[in-house]
Design a protein around this nucleic acid. Structure first.
Length: 502
RNA sequence: GUGGUUAUAGCUCAGUUGGUUAGAGCAUCAGAUUGUGGUUCUGAGGGUCGCCGGUUCGAACCCGGUUAGCCACCCCA
């Protein structure tokens, strides 16, 4: 018999872990509900062509494909062999595989909306908490099976949705632990950017078709720095002038742009309202103001409207958070001009959530706006915006920072000692009464010496033991011991229901 | 998909240039202790040294392969 083992990148979760994970799930779910989102579940598997081509070239490779049943049917042997030849050449063939495990929750959701758009009331706000699978090689913070918690709004272009999503992110972390936001170092970082800005920059460089190359390179800025990015761009075939254009947009000479100048704002062609936005941003964060005005200037100069509208969207989203510093409790929001995000279906706002800087783990959530996801399934013109929480990583972050509250443990509260047949019968009756008043209890399964029963309680983190022997039966009392401090007291059975087993 | 690294008792790990019967701590079980555990003491059980092959008189140790974990790259939650 071979040693039992798990498939690569998957894990079992013991009782303690499940409780903590459920705490995260429940917290996120209740915030989703609070903001008016409704639950949805979709199957673990989808038709392969529902998923293929939606996540970029790399993404396709990471989709877990399911081999068809019945390939051993002798009548179809010839066909199966021919099909398998094609698989060996790297093709997907219906004869061999036509289903796959879902890779994320967004595409199956788009498929659902496309199939049911006639019945849905728009804007449709749904949340979904389910596992997804990726055939990736596991490493720190990366698993082959993990849970996502998604909330999306489809059928609305309003930027109010983006603002609500940011508020939800903040509220989830506030509810998860009071320590998030306790001080500056513990805050969650919500970065936003806009794909339209990338499109604009690509146009500035005169290569709109190379937007993916630009975003992939700039997305690594945090990791490889400005020189590394430059090197990668040049490797991808960008010339000196183009890289200069990109950098001058994203990393402006702040000393120039941080001076507030009314005439300059007028030159940018902003409306009165937009100018007010800019003034507020200036008061809130000079660097933010610098990047925004720099981008606006560049796009204005070259009449690239898509870029301009991207910047204006960012301004409108950040604005409420500049007006009220207390809107965000556990996080802060900033414009990260290098933020790109790999998924290619995003078209507007993009959002990425990062843990406090002390934790070296990638993003713990992300999302963005997509104009036409359902168009992929034949139903055009349903725009949407959504966010995804990565529970497995949030767990790792909470664990590393020791942020799980003590109340997460919801195991047995009272262990009834087993002192013999008559005694345990009496104990059993009392135990059922306690259970009826919602106290979690159990009776030790056999009559053994106290030593063992105590150790059992200690290991299972059961705070109270309850001892009923012949003496207690006669007196209609019981002995309640708090094993955390060793204190014990004798109380009448009639008063037991009033005892606070906390 | 590419590269690095690790694999020895239930857990954490020692293990000399290759040399007789592979060790420690923790955990488990039994006893000191028949209604009060956590400390202490005594004793016991527990191993195909990841798996397969090679070199050698002899391999936990050297070599090749393989599987899995971890880490990094690509990419991503």
């Amino acid at each position: 018999m071979a040693k039992p083992s798990l498939p690569q990148g998957t894990r079992d979760f013991g009782p303690d872990t499940v409780r903590k994970r459920n705490y995260i799930f429940n917290t996120i779910r209740s915030v989703f509900e609070l903001y008016g989102f409704e639950p949805l579940e979709t199957p673990a598997m989808e038709n392969l062509d529902t998923l293929m081509g939606k996540y970029g070239e790399e993404g396709d490779k990471l989709i877990f494909k399911i081999i068809n049943n019945g390939l051993d049917n002798i009548d179809k042997e010839k066909q199966a062999r021919e099909d398998f030849e094609k698989v060996l050449q790297g093709k997907n063939v219906k004869g061999i595989t036509e289903r796959a495990l879902k890779y994320d929750l967004t595409i199956p959701f788009a498929r659902y909306v496309a199939m049911n758009h006639g019945q849905l009331t728009f804007p449709f706000k749904r949340y979904q908490i389910q596992p997804v699978w990726r055939a990736d090689r596991p490493q720190k913070g990366r698993y082959r099976e993990f849970y996502q918690c998604d909330a999306d709004v489809v059928g609305s272009n309003s930027l109010l949705n983006e603002i609500e999503i940011i508020l939800m992110i903040d509220q989830v972390y506030s509810n998860l632990s009071k320590h998030f936001g306790e001080n500056e170092n513990n805050r969650i970082n919500i970065s936003i950017n806009n794909r339209k800005i990338w499109t604009g920059i690509a146009e500035l460089c005169g290569c709109r078709d190379k937007i993916v190359e630009i975003t992939v390179a700039l997305d690594k800025y945090d990791k490889i720095g400005i020189d590394g990015v430059k090197e990668e761009l040049i490797q991808k075939g960008f010339n000196e002038e183009q890289t200069h254009t990109i950098f001058s947009c994203l990393f402006p000479d702040t000393s120039f742009y941080t001076t507030y100048d009314d005439d300059y704002l007028n030159e940018l062609g902003l409306t009165k309202d937009e100018k007010n936005l800019a003034v507020t941003l200036y008061g809130y964060n000079k660097d933010l103001y610098a990047i925004i005005t720099c981008l606006l200037w560049n796009f204005k100069e070259h009449k690239i409207e898509i870029g301009t509208s991207g910047v204006k969207e960012i301004m409108k989203i950040i604005f409420p958070f500049c007006m009220d510093n207390y809107l965000l409790q556990s996080s802060f929001i900033n414009l990260d001009s290098t933020l790109a995000r790999g998924l290619n279906y995003y078209t507007g706002t993009i959002i990425e959530v990062k843990p406090p800087p002390a934790v070296k783990i990638g993003s713990i959530g992300g999302g963005g706006r997509y104009d036409d996801l359902t168009g992929l399934f034949g139903v055009p013109n349903i725009p949407g915006v959504g966010i995804s929480f990565g529970v497995d990583r949030i767990y790792d972050v909470m664990e590393e920072l020791k942020f799980f509250p003590g109340e997460v443990h919801t195991g047995t509260q009272v262990l009834f000692f087993n002192l013999g047949e008559t005694e345990s019968k009496a104990a059993f009756t009392i135990m059922q009464q306690l259970r009826n008043s919602n106290i979690r209890c159990e009776l030790y399964h056999e009559t053994v010496k106290f030593d063992k029963q105590f150790k059992y309680a200690e290991k299972k983190n059961i705070p109270y033991t309850l001892i009923i022997g012949s003496k207690e039966i006669a007196e209609k009392t019981c002995v309640v011991k708090d094993i955390r401090n060793g204190e014990q007291q004798t109380i009448p059975v009639s008063k037991l229901a009033d005892f606070a087993f906390i």
